[in-house]
Simulated scan of single mutants.
Amino acid sequence: MQIKYQYNSLLLLLFVFILSCNQGSKEKYIYHHDQGEIFTTGYDIKYAYNRSLKEEIVAELNKFDMSLNPFKENSIISKVNRNEPVKLDSFFLKVFHRAEEISRTTDGNFDITVSPLINAWGFGFQNMDSITPQIIDSLKSFVGYEKISIDATGNIIKADPRVQINTSAIAKGYACDVIANLLEGYGITNYMVAIGGEIAAKGRNNKGACWHIEVTKPVDDATGMLSYRQTVLSLCDKSIATSGNYRNYYIKDGKKYAHTIDPISGYPSQLDILGATVIADDCMTADAYATAFMVMGLKKSIETAKKLAGIHYYFIYEKNDGSFGVEYSDGFEQFFVKE
């Protein structure tokens, strides 16, 4: 949510409470439950229909994978990164232009060209002791969302051939939207699509209630095995994504630094927000802003979010005394489950 720019997400801060179907259900259709793996993470899809659509879902996810998975040698994004001629498909074009837009609204704090910096620091900051300001400056010369664009004929234009892109911080959310659109194409109005920690939901579950989503508490647990409830949210016709840093950081000179790399400075973000949950009309938007807010920190994230129509946030942050605080947007109360 990874750093979040990687497909292999290091954290899943959300999981979904789906109540099991019962014999007394009054739904017209059966609730199907399809599970599997895509982008080295799991997907979990529930929907009400008269038959299973797993075959169609898998086919659509495979098409998506061949477009935007940078770890597949023959994917479109891999060919773009190798500067090979390639025809860009609708998946690539939509996610690229949306990423470009979100980069502008976040003053470059969201950036799909940051991979060279991520790779330099290494997984878990394994290369931290060998990083120098000179290395960072060198890499920053070909990192920046403004250094790559698509011209009117649909061709990629790079300011430097070394520019690389990785859409992992937005692609899982967009994949949720893609499958949601697939389901709606079959007239399905009640569904929940979860890929990794990103979720698109519409209508209601088999109990006639909005889908219930749990946000977990920050726990200083390197194993990732501990999970405690922070709050439960009710989601109807909305999408949600969460990004978090509390299990992945290092301490230097008494300060905590997150696993999220700041694309502007080239260095890990200083830890402030521990978990950013974003609700939006589409999952691609929620996914990208959840990542951007982790980089921007509490104050700037709140200022930015206030300017964005349709964006709702729930931030868990660390106070100066080491305790946890919560900030959420005006009107966010509508999503809390009444217990």
Results as ranks from 00 to 15, higher is better:
K319P: 02
F64I: 02
K256G: 01
E100Q: 15
Y314M: 04
I156K: 01
K72T: 08
H97N: 13
H33P: 00
Y7H: 12
P268K: 04
G331D: 03
I156D: 00
S234F: 05
D253C: 00
Q35A: 08
A159W: 08
R98N: 09
L235P: 01
F315H: 09
N205Y: 09
A159K: 15
W211T: 03
E73S: 09
F92S: 02
A99P: 00
Y249W: 13
N155K: 14
P133K: 02
N62L: 15
A241E: 06
T41Q: 11
Q126I: 14
D129M: 10
N50D: 15
M66F: 14
N206E: 15
E60C: 11
G185Y: 09
G254T: 07
E56H: 12
S115R: 14
Y289L: 15
E37G: 04
S149R: 13
M284Q: 12
K300N: 03
A48S: 15
N22S: 15
Q164P: 00
G297F: 08
E333M: 03
P133F: 02
N83I: 09
D44A: 01
V58P: 02
K28N: 10
G122A: 10
L13I: 09
P218N: 03
A290K: 05
A280V: 03
H33N: 08
N22G: 10
S168I: 04
E339Q: 14
K87Q: 11
I188F: 09
P263V: 06
S52T: 11
L12Q: 13
E327Y: 11
P85H: 11
P133R: 01
I30W: 12
I112S: 06
F92L: 05
D65I: 01
G173K: 09
K54D: 12
I157M: 05
Q2S: 14
G187H: 06
K307R: 14
